[in-house]
Design a binder for these strands. Structure first.
Lengths: 203, 203
DNA sequence: CGTGTGCTTTACGGAGTGTAAAGTAACCCT
DNA sequence: AGGGTTACTTTACACTCCGTAAAGCACACG
């Protein structure tokens, strides 16, 4: 699936519209008007419809666009290519501390729009499921294989907790509302995981 | 502030509209139309405007209405009136396991609507700030006073983590998407807190 | 009997979405 | 050079929902 069904028009224009949409969401972090997106990209409102069909199509495309723009592939390689599962978890937390900062506004809006927009919900869910799988396979399973998973936890449960706690929601609350710095976020979340999920090696 | 500026009309009608709105949000979990809310309550669309001014007013009132309906006061007494801070935390986690289930859909929608609606955002924030304060005072501070807070943590940081992890977002993801039962939620979150935040007493 | 309260009914303006269709400018091919 | 294709623009319109306004109605209360 998702073998790019040949997108309409000039890819460069398409990219400009997506970037404009992204910027607008960041700026006045509310659901944008399609006319604005077009204006900011230097095209007519109709061009937006030609490229993306409707609002839903635009937002779904944006999810993908953001992933590409932030070089998610390379990030994944760095995080999940760590020598050990424990180190991979460490890198995951560190990475989320700044990565989530970049997609914060957008993720907040897209999460909120899911109720009005089924296609968007599917796209977002898909993205998050992939994240879950990666954490399961490359982090939690390896930690267990290394004998570092505290005995109380199943692999599934540990993976679920890591996934949930490092989602944008908690990050947003901790850094935006409670004033944690990225360093504090990274440090404290890591400590939380280390103490609760891992076996003690500070003997 | 908020000394009830004398609400319009029959309180019974007002209540019916709020209940109808609540039910509608639960049913087809998206942002409702004001006409629907009126219909379901057996009044005209205009009546909704007379009672609440606009959509924003309706939703803000709903936040309050839900709190009252679920007997939040009694709940608070039970949770925060526990003999010890540790027991209070235990009760908090247990309570959130089912309480969040009741407000899940609504909280999701209200969270999502915050970007479009400043007044609603303020009301929601206010509600969450109160929750934070209560956790800080009646749970974390007492745990620290009892000497049960693990030395690595400041009272603020522990309170922040408890608050954030027991928010609706993580609950939703764990129970709705990952299939945890309320019992599993309660058990696992408690274990997470116990292992990471508290001193070991299983000597 | 008249006045106020609580709501209904009808009406209208405005914003934003999505669709349709005709026009334009550049390029591409032979 | 002419004809077609591509990538848009422009204009226009129907639709939905919001919010406001104003007149009407029914009933209770004095």
């Amino acid at each position: 699936m998702s073998t790019s069904a040949k997108t309409y028009g000039d890819p460069e224009t398409r990219r400009r519209i997506l970037d404009a949409t992204w910027e607008l969401l960041e700026e006045h972090g509310s659901s944008i008007k399609l006319a604005e997106a077009g204006d900011k990209a230097g095209v007519s409102r109709q061009a937006v419809y030609l490229h993306f069909g409707d609002r839903s199509g635009l937002l779904v495309a944006l999810v993908d666009h953001i992933d590409r723009s932030l070089g998610s592939v390379r990030l994944r390689e760095h995080v999940f290519g760590a020598p050990t599962g424990v180190e991979s978890l460490r890198r995951w937390v560190d990475t989320m501390a700044w990565y989530t900062a970049k997609i914060n506004r957008v993720s907040q809006i897209l999460e909120g729009a899911q109720h009005e927009d089924e296609a968007l919900a599917a796209a977002w869910r898909n993205r998050m499921n992939r994240r879950q799988d990666l954490l399961h396979q490359h982090v939690t399973e390896r930690i267990a294989a290394e004998g570092r998973l505290a005995e109380q936890w199943s692999i599934d449960d540990a993976a679920a907790l890591i996934y949930v706690i490092t989602m944008p929601g908690p990050w947003r609350e901790l850094t935006q509302e409670l004033g944690w710095t990225p360093e504090e976020y990274s440090e404290h979340i890591w400590r939380l995981f280390e103490r609760s999920l891992l076996t003690n090696t500070t003997q």
